[in-house]
Write a protein that binds this DNA or RNA. Structure first.
Lengths: 333, 333
DNA sequence: TCCTTGCTTGGAACCGGTTACACTAGCATA
DNA sequence: TATGCTAGTGTAACCGGTTCCAAGCAAGGA
């Protein structure tokens, strides 16, 4: 059995209250008592039981991070940001991957209602609004990550999709491309819509008319992107450039274009969105999101909520990404 | 304030003990009582407080997973395996990344001694033996991941490095390569040594004499690998194939060879080790380790230890990897 | 000298569950 | 009818801390 506070107080000849005060650096303890107690603590190698402490204090110093099963490339970088910020602020991190889509709520509310965590960071790009509503109702600190949220009562940290769409497109335009094919996400995806708005804005700023034929859709994965793209090819000439709304699509396209003999960047420039690590190896230009920073900010926002109880208005952070230029958009010489 | 067990028992007109029995499906409760209590639980939306429960039961249903900061490609896949196995067995997962090397112990023992976790999965490829010794002394269930351990008292799950080295080399030999350069890890790395042994065994089986000049060393990263390789090039002719002892080196080499005009696989075949995801995009052949399965097995081993208290002899699982053939070792036609 | 004040300290309740043990009632057995 | 057993339930201690409140005690002021 581990050493407990009781053993310490018996050994030191003081009460539990006093030992507890020493542990928490309470000022109202005389110097001699404090030193005596500390000596015993050292000698018996006492570490207070966090469970008991948490039960008393009604807090766990732990935050939950809920990720979707799929979110591959981001995952580690984001979690890294979360973990580093959390550990700096002396919090622990419970991770949980939702296995089935729709699982999120059950897992989240279980963690929350069982009081295992003080707050939750939720990364669920496809979580429907009503589920968020439900989570909100549990009334525990919550930060939604990587999902621009309309609801002003929900704290969120997200990449500025509009700004990103604009920058990526502008980058292609600067390289001399004018017929820029956008492979967007599904209808109704807020992320996709905002990126599209940025894309259009960049065109407008360059006095290029928006051509609806040059915007095709996917489900943010390569398979659906391929189908759309082949459809496009049958009807139209190859564009100057392709702006894929995420890196998975872009990486898939890169490979695919090679197989059909289209050279990147000589025949067509290609840019992705997200900045997953693989893009570096693939020499793919992309708009990188500051994932680690997003993780850090999410933690900060969450802990701010946890530590000051009075209801504060929610914050919605929008972090800006940046274009990383690699071979796939190198200027044709 | 959340609903507590006390409120349930008052509302249902029974004692705490009875409510607790209902919650835990204890058989000694009459049907009527059980139903009445359950109805109240439903109606008041009661969820028992895990902290209180844990304190009483002296267990947390939580395992810790400690990763090094660097272990990129593996990270998500491994964690995925851990998470899925843990959640199937009704355990939670606390993750922690050690930020500074050497941090591991402090973090691990803090989690363990504070009784926040019931056991620990430690992934620390570079953890010195004496630190493991120290962790062992805390005497809490522990599984070491991805590190062949000499100590028979420590449970571990690891890839079979010998088998992997053998298979990767044999794969190259089958493709007709005979001068096979191995870019190994540092001296004294158990992983590297075992892979090397496999490499040598494969050569021996093919009646190829081992040539010490064809074994160069790195620190398992591209920078040191480059230095060694350039050194090698100045003195010797290009080999038939290169077996890189991890994928990071292999991916770096792939890029590097391209810049110096050496074609893969036409001029030289290239194979990596580990099976990180990027290898797929890079068309790099590699020996993939079953990362997800390793995570799952580690959890299983750990929970087996947690749940049967009598000291059992430690198990050391060695999972075998498999060669995934991609373009970088495609047979020259 | 007596009372007030402030610093230390201890007693005991509390956080929200689990469970060993005691107790009661009902029924079968002797 | 007395006895033993069992099923169902309640009492109270316990897990290991935190903290409110009261009390002891010495110093300072009236």
């Amino acid at each position: 059995m581990a050493v407990t506070l009781k053993q310490i107080c018996e050994e030191a000849g003081v009460s539990k209250a006093t030992v507890s005060r020493v542990l928490n650096n309470h000022p109202l303890v005389s110097k001699e008592t404090r030193e005596k107690v500390q000596e015993v603590i050292q000698r018996l190698k006492f570490t207070p039981n966090a469970l008991a402490r948490n039960l008393s204090l009604r807090r766990t110093d732990t935050i939950g991070v809920l990720f979707p099963w799929i979110f591959n490339g981001f995952f580690s970088t984001l979690l890294r940001g979360v973990d580093s910020a959390a550990s700096e602020l002396n919090y622990h991190v419970i991770t949980s991957l939702s296995h089935d889509a729709g699982d999120e709520n059950a897992m989240a509310s279980r963690l929350l209602k069982e009081r295992r965590i003080d707050g939750l960071i939720l990364m669920a790009p496809s979580l429907p609004a009503d589920q968020i509503e439900e989570l909100k109702s549990i009334d525990v600190p919550l930060v939604v990550l990587q999902r621009e949220i309309a609801d002003p009562e929900v704290n969120s940290v997200s990449v500025d999709n509009f700004d990103g769409g604009l920058k990526a497109t502008a980058h292609l335009i600067e390289r001399g491309c004018r017929r820029i094919l956008a492979i967007a996400g599904p209808q109704g995806s807020l992320d996709s819509d905002r990126r599209e708005a940025g894309y259009r804005e960049a065109l407008k700023q360059a006095d290029i008319a928006f051509d609806p034929d040059l915007l095709i859709r996917s489900n943010f994965n390569k398979e659906t992107a391929f189908t759309s793209f082949e459809n496009f090819r049958r009807r139209f000439a190859m564009p100057d450039a392709i702006f894929c709304f995420n890196d998975e699509i872009a990486l898939g396209m890169l490979k695919y274009l090679k197989t059909i003999g289209v050279r990147v960047p000589e025949d067509v420039a290609l840019i992705g969105f997200d900045g997953i690590e693989f893009t570096e190896f693939a020499e793919l230009s992309t708009l990188t999101m500051p994932m680690q920073e997003m993780g850090r900010q999410a933690v900060r926002l969450l802990i701010k909520q946890i530590e000051c109880k009075e209801k504060r208005t929610a914050e919605q952070l929008l972090l800006k990404g940046a274009v990383v230029e690699r071979n796939s958009t190198r200027r044709r010489s």
